[in-house]
Design a protein around this nucleic acid. Structure first.
Length: 287
DNA sequence: CATTTCACCTGGTGGC
DNA sequence: TGCCACCAGGTGAAAT
């Protein structure tokens, strides 16, 4: 489900509602798949921690955690620096994951794998029917802070962007989806940015001209920023931390519009498979 | 090494 | 109503 704009929306919503709060109790489910860290040690590590901040890195949601006392006994004053994070809780939503802030008495959805009870009277819940999502705990005294493998699509400049793809033969669509190159682009925004840049998804990325690469970089940035401003795309079941759907699906030009007329030229949108993924494009507008 | 394919899961949809 | 095939926002291991 979630690509960069959806993960950004969830991270912002969770941050807004839980930063400064404290985790008092943790419940974990029985399915092993979501746990990169063994569930018992994850629960033990989370309990008592203060949630300093929540942000997005690539498609990951990173919660910075401090000691239990840091925000309770010493409320922040204007000049007080943020406490240093001592640990991180990292959430990847996979295809169907949700990170929700609820009241403790809200009905527990099927496929709930973790519930974090907060001192402020709310719960942070991880729900994921397909179990492709992942939860990870990091003790920063023993491990390095999490960093995504690839570059941030919203920050990369034209020089770096071109360098990422130089000498590569794979289709540009597959290159956009490769998280080791760019972190955060998924199937929707790969198709949508290629449409806006006027580039066919099967073109070899190493053979794109410098001008085409720059068009693609700008189109990607614009599409991601606009999607964030609209709360992401809700194709079937994506919702943010408050259970609210996004609106960017109304702006899709090609994604899941197979056979429908192109909104620019009227030609029917084509569906092909590239790198094992459904790929949508306009045969007239994209060359 | 770079690239491609497939398995991992549940659930929704549409055809018969 | 049931059964089946196919599809879905991601990723990482295995094969090529």
């Amino acid at each position: 489900m979630p690509e960069l704009p959806e993960v950004e929306t969830v991270a912002r919503g969770v941050h807004q509602r839980v930063h400064g709060d404290r985790i008092v109790e943790v419940w974990v489910g029985r399915h092993p798949e979501p746990f990169k860290t063994p569930p018992a040690s994850m629960a033990k590590g989370l309990e008592g921690r203060a949630i300093l901040s929540v942000r997005r890195l690539g498609k990951h949601i990173v919660c910075e955690l401090g000691t239990a006392a840091s925000n309770r006994t010493a409320p922040r004053r204007a000049r007080t620096p943020s406490p240093q994070p001592e640990a991180q809780w990292i959430v990847h939503l996979g295809m169907t994951g949700r990170l929700l802030v609820t009241t403790p008495d809200a009905p527990v959805a099927a496929h709930t794998h973790a519930r974090l009870t907060l001192a402020g009277g709310r719960e942070l819940r991880f729900v994921d029917p397909r179990r492709f999502g992942r939860l990870e705990w990091r003790d920063l005294r023993r491990s390095k802070p999490f960093t995504p493998p690839g570059a941030e699509p919203l920050e990369i400049d034209s020089e770096e962007f071109a360098a990422l793809f130089r000498k590569r033969k794979l289709p540009v669509k597959a290159a956009l989806l490769n998280q080791a190159l760019l972190s955060g682009v998924g199937n929707i925004y790969a198709d949508e940015s290629l449409f806006r840049a006027g580039i066919r998804p099967r073109r070899s990325v190493g053979r794109l001209s410098r001008a085409e690469l720059e068009r693609l970089r700008r189109a990607l940035g614009e599409v991601l920023r606009q999607a964030i401003s609209l709360g992401g795309s809700s194709v079937s079941d994506y919702v943010d931390a408050n259970g609210v759907r996004g609106f960017f699906q109304l702006e899709h030009r090609v994604y899941q519009r197979t056979g429908e007329p192109c909104r620019v030229c009227g030609a029917p949108i084509q569906r092909i498979v590239v790198g094992g993924r459904s790929t949508h494009y306009c045969p007239a507008c994209q060359r």
